[in-house]
Amino acid sequence: MSTTLMGTILIVEDTLSELELMSHYLRESGYNVINAIGAKEALNKVLEQKPDVIVTDVVMPGMSGFELCRRLKTHPVTEKIPIVICSSKNQEIDRLWGMKQGADAYLTKPFTREQILRAIKSVAL
């Protein structure tokens, strides 16, 4: 199989079923996928593996996706990596708050395969 990899996506999600689903959609579409179960693990993996795009949940134990987003956007090594927040919080205020933390796109759950791919393509450099 000679599929060209389109880039590396780090998925930060503490619900395994969601993580599996997103990984499946993205791998099938030609992306290389790295998984992190929480924000702290994500911070380590971002520095080690320098993904092209980060997709993060908001509600996670320890550190929220909003806080993760803020940390990444204020760190010189990671500030340029596009972040897609993927959350079940679907109020406009949540979306605005996510963008204020530095997110490049905000996707609400449940999402379709097309929606997640469109969100990633919209922010990928």
Rank of each mutant, 00 (worst) to 15 (best):
M22D: 14
M22H: 10
L26P: 06
E28G: 12
S29H: 03
Y31T: 01
Y31I: 00
N32D: 12
N32A: 11
V33M: 02
I34M: 07
I37T: 12
G38F: 01
K40E: 15
L43F: 09
K45Q: 11
V46H: 01
V46T: 00
Q49K: 15
K50I: 10
K50L: 11
D52L: 01
V53C: 13
V53D: 08
V55M: 13
V55G: 05
V58S: 10
V58R: 14
V58G: 11
V59L: 13
V59P: 05
G62K: 03
M63P: 09
G65W: 02
R71F: 11
K73M: 09
K73L: 07
K73N: 12
H75K: 03
H75W: 03
P76R: 15
K80I: 07
I83T: 08
I83A: 07
V84M: 06
I85Y: 01
C86L: 13
S88P: 06
E92D: 12
E92T: 14
I93Y: 14
R95P: 09
W97M: 15
M99I: 15
M99G: 10
K100M: 15
G102T: 06
A103S: 06
D104R: 03
D104C: 06
A105E: 14
L107S: 03
T108N: 14
T108M: 14
T112C: 09
